[in-house]
């Protein structure tokens, strides 16, 4: 419903000119924040104020602002995407905070995600992992009638749940090892659950994992932090499934 009177908050936000310079936390007071605002709209208000006083606004990534593109990526009070589970930064609203709060906002931290500027990081490593095998090799025009492939509903649903990953990188940011296992396993699971994905199943897992390692992501030590912070609630089961895939890929490779 309607809320009278806005909140006054203190923001401590990571400022960093580019990947080559050091960054630091800068303090910004913000006032008269409506609880109906989204977290990113609060940043819009702050940036407008900074611009009007001739200061540089804070750079952050965002696009759809409805939790689906995976672009927004803020580490808020120590948690990727903030204090509420199951949502992205852009879906967080100011009614989750109270008057007088101090909020610390930082970029994703991982060697494989270098900072571009302020809260913006480079996640192109994710694209390179997909390019290594996150697909079914079928050229346009080669497909048979769609209903020739029958897929049990439960398998289709499981594949969909894995495919719901938005590639935001919160799992990496949440992990003390900066592991990309949840992201990679979600794609491997989706395709290994479907008949279309069977033919390349071994090479896919091997190639994607090889690139994941090359890109500098850490090892998975099963802390489960990724699942807890994933805005799409991608399940740890995918990692178990991937380990099975990878293990069988290795065994097959050794037999050759």
């Amino acid at each position: 419903m309607s809320h009278e009177g806005g909140m006054n908050l203190t923001l401590k936000v990571w400022k960093q000119k580019n990947s080559k310079t050091e960054g630091h936390l800068e303090t910004y007071p913000v006032s008269d924040i409506s609880p109906d605002m989204s977290f990113l709209e609060m940043f819009d208000v702050l940036n407008e104020k900074l611009i009007s006083t001739g200061k540089e606004p804070i750079a952050f990534d965002h696009d759809c602002r409805e939790g689906i593109c995976g672009m927004c990526s803020m580490h808020i009070n120590g948690r990727p995407h903030g204090p509420k589970g199951g949502i992205t930064t852009c879906q967080l609203h100011m009614r989750s905070f109270k008057d007088g709060d101090t909020i610390v906002v930082e970029p994703w931290r991982a060697a494989a995600f270098p900072v571009v500027k302020d809260l913006v990081v480079d996640r192109s490593s994710f694209d390179r992992i997909i390019a290594a095998g996150g697909y079914v090799s079928v050229n346009t025009g080669n497909a048979k009638d769609a209903n020739n492939i029958l897929i049990p509903k439960t398998d289709a649903d499981d594949a969909f749940n894995a495919a719901a990953c938005i590639g935001c990188g919160a799992c990496v940011a949440a992990c003390k090892n900066a592991s990309a296992m949840l992201f990679v396993s979600a794609k491997i699971s989706q395709l290994s659950l479907l008949p279309q994905g069977q033919i390349e199943r071994t090479s896919r897992a091997e190639n994607m994992i090889a690139v994941m390692d090359e890109e500098g992501f850490g090892n998975c030590t099963n802390t489960g932090a990724c699942e807890a912070e994933c805005p799409k609630e991608i399940s740890l089961e995918n990692i178990a499934r991937m380990n099975r895939e990878f293990f069988s890929a290795k065994v097959l490779a050794n037999k050759k």
């Binding site: 079914v136 079928v138 497909a143 769609a146 969909f160 495919a163 479907l194």
Partner: peptide, 12 residues
């Protein structure tokens, strides 16, 4: 047809 061949998980 093309999307299904790629592994798009449509509702079933």
């Amino acid at each position: 047809d093309q999307c299904v061949a790629q592994g798009v998980p449509f509702a079933r």
